[in-house]
Computed example of a mutant assay.
Amino acid sequence: MDLRGRTLGRYRLTRLLGRGGMGTVYLAEQTLTGARVAVKVLHPSLAREARLRARFDAEARTVNLIGHPSIVRVFDINESEDGLHYFVMEYLEGTPLSRLPRPVEPGLVAWLLAQACDALEAVHRGGVVHRDLKPDNLLMVERPGERPTLKVLDFGVARALHDPGNQEQTMAGQVFGTPAYMSPEQWTGLRVDGRADVYSLGVTGYQLLTGQLPYPRGQLAELVLSPEPPPPLRPPHKLAPAVPEALSRALLRALARNPADRFASALELKKALLAAVQSTHPPACPFPLSPVARAADAAAAPARSN
Rank of each mutant, 00 (worst) to 15 (best):
S305M: 05
Y206T: 10
A246P: 14
L220R: 02
L213G: 04
Y215M: 11
A221Y: 10
H281V: 03
A296I: 12
Q278F: 00
P302R: 09
P288Q: 08
P232V: 07
P235R: 10
A293Q: 13
A296Q: 13
L273K: 08
E222N: 12
D261I: 08
V292N: 09
V224M: 15
P288K: 08
A246E: 14
L209Y: 11
P283W: 00
H281M: 04
R217M: 09
N258M: 00
P286F: 00
A254K: 06
A242I: 02
Q278H: 08
S248K: 09
K270A: 07
P282Q: 11
Q212E: 14
D261C: 04
A272D: 06
A242Y: 06
S226I: 03
R253F: 00
A298D: 11
E222P: 04
R234A: 05
S248E: 13
A264Y: 00
G211Y: 07
A301Y: 00
S290I: 12
T210Y: 03
P286Q: 02
D261P: 03
P302M: 09
L233A: 04
L289C: 12
K238E: 15
T280H: 12
Q219T: 12
L251F: 01
R234N: 09
P230G: 12
N258C: 03
A284Y: 07
P229A: 03
P232Y: 03
L255M: 07
L233Y: 05
P259S: 13
A303E: 06
S305W: 01
T210L: 09
A256V: 12
A284P: 12
R262C: 03
S305K: 08
E268M: 11
A242V: 04
A246F: 00
R234T: 15
A284S: 15
Q219S: 15
V292M: 10
V277S: 03
S305V: 12
P229T: 02
T280C: 07
A300K: 06
A240F: 01
P259G: 10
K238R: 14
L247Y: 01
A250Q: 02
P227G: 06
H237L: 13
P236K: 02
A299V: 13
E228K: 14
G218Q: 14
E245T: 08
A303G: 09
L220A: 02
P291V: 11
P244R: 06
A256N: 06
G218F: 00
G218E: 14
H237G: 12
F263T: 13
P214I: 06
S248A: 04
A301T: 14
P288E: 09
L289K: 11
L223D: 02
P259N: 09
V224D: 04
Y215P: 04
L223K: 12
L233D: 05
A266W: 00
L223A: 12
P282M: 07
L233E: 10
A296F: 01
L223Y: 07
P282Y: 06
V292P: 09
L225D: 02
A240K: 08
L209W: 05
R257G: 00
E222M: 05
A275E: 15
L220M: 12
R249F: 02
A272M: 07
A240Q: 15
S290V: 13
P231G: 05
T280K: 10
Q278E: 13
L255W: 02
L225Q: 11
R253Y: 00
L269N: 06
P231N: 10
P235A: 13
S279E: 15
L233F: 07
P282N: 10
A250G: 08
